[in-house]
């Protein structure tokens, strides 16, 4: 008799004065899956999460977690969710262990249970050694992990992760990804907001692309890649004078126009790896030497350009 969706938001509208943060956004995920919410800064991701987590009331639309309405029964929803905000909200004057024990006590665990739960989570998150150090001495990555642990004290059914890896270096990001995968293996449903297609691709069962407070595309990573060109080929000829020639070859194979990337390279979206092989073959046949030839996922900016015709206004180095 469980509800079809672990969480569900329908037509959410939220205005802050003159600004419309959410303009009819709808998000949902079946139990035990990861929904990636992909969008640039200011797209409304955090506002949507705050409504689902009962921290904000929507102006219109409805939202429910495990079938429980977030506006009518916020207290019941709070028993089902864990929230990890964009900026780690741990108490810096308390130790890692004290942070988690306090949350355990607030979740009505007995003192002994709260301590055991905290110790277990600290061990799971590689923080056992730092358990009795103040959180103010933690590195950025450790703080994120403590924050994640804090949202898991109550064994939530649904976890909201609002840009959990923003500002982390790639190795630390992998750590967080591993944690998310473990949660999903345990049956938890995750809503993950991110600015990186790569991250959504690595973790999410389905991706909603949001812009200006609404969903502009939704599908699996594979479906999304089909729309925007699954991957991008970058060609940097050894002789910059032959750039136009290289671009023409790439464009002919991809069947899409090539775009310049910097002064001496060109990129083109392709549908599959076969196109990449074909480009390599033709460059070779033309006797065109290259200093760089790569295949990568499109950036959020490229996804946006394809879907909306406008840039996000923020470029991230690949």
């Amino acid at each position: 008799m469980g509800p079809m969706y672990a969480f569900e938001a329908e037509g959410l509208v939220k205005r802050f004065g003159e600004t419309t943060a959410l303009n009819g956004i709808s998000l949902s995920a079946p139990p035990g899956t990861v929904l990636g919410v992909l969008g640039p800064n200011g797209a409304g991701k955090t506002t949507a999460v705050r409504i689902l987590a009962t921290l904000l009331r929507p102006d219109a639309g409805r939202a429910a977690v495990a079938g429980v309405d977030v506006v009518r029964h916020p207290a019941r929803v709070r028993r089902l969710i864990g929230l990890t905000g964009q900026y780690a909200s741990v108490d810096e004057d308390l130790t890692g262990a004290e942070n988690l024990v306090l949350i355990g006590r607030l979740l009505d665990l007995r003192s002994g249970e709260a301590k055991a739960r905290a110790a277990r989570l600290l061990a799971d998150f590689g923080l056992a050694e730092a358990a009795d150090r103040r959180a103010s001495t933690y590195s950025g990555g450790m703080r994120r992990r403590l924050d994640l642990a804090a949202s898991l004290v109550g064994r939530p059914e649904v976890i909201f992760l609002d840009e959990p890896t923003t500002g982390l270096d790639p190795a630390k990001r992998e750590d967080v990804w591993a944690i998310v995968r473990r949660l999903v293996a345990d049956g938890v449903t995750v809503l993950l907001t991110t600015q990186y297609l790569e991250e959504a691709d690595a973790l999410a069962d389905a991706i909603s692309v949001v812009d200006h407070g609404r969903v502009i595309a939704h599908g699996t990573a594979a479906e999304l890649k089909r729309v925007v060109g699954g991957q991008t080929v970058l060609v940097r000829p050894a002789d910059p004078a032959r750039l136009a020639e290289a671009a023409a070859i790439a464009a002919a194979v991809a069947g899409r126009p090539a775009e310049p990337a910097g002064r001496d390279a060109t990129t083109v979206p392709v549908d599959d790896a076969a196109a990449f092989t074909e480009i390599v073959r033709r460059l070779d046949a033309a006797g065109l030497a290259v200093t760089e030839l790569s295949l990568r996922l499109p950036s959020l900016d490229e996804v946006f350009f394809t879907l909306t015709g406008h840039r996000t206004g923020q470029e991230r180095a690949a």
């Binding site: 921290l55 207290a75 019941r76 709070r78 905000g85 909200s89 949350i103 607030l106 979740l107």
Partner: peptide, 17 residues
């Protein structure tokens, strides 16, 4: 301002606690 209270607000405790 630091966001510490966001965590408390997402927990099933009384608003005034």
């Amino acid at each position: 301002k630091k966001g510490v209270f966001d965590r408390f607000r997402s927990l099933p405790i009384g608003r005034s606690a």
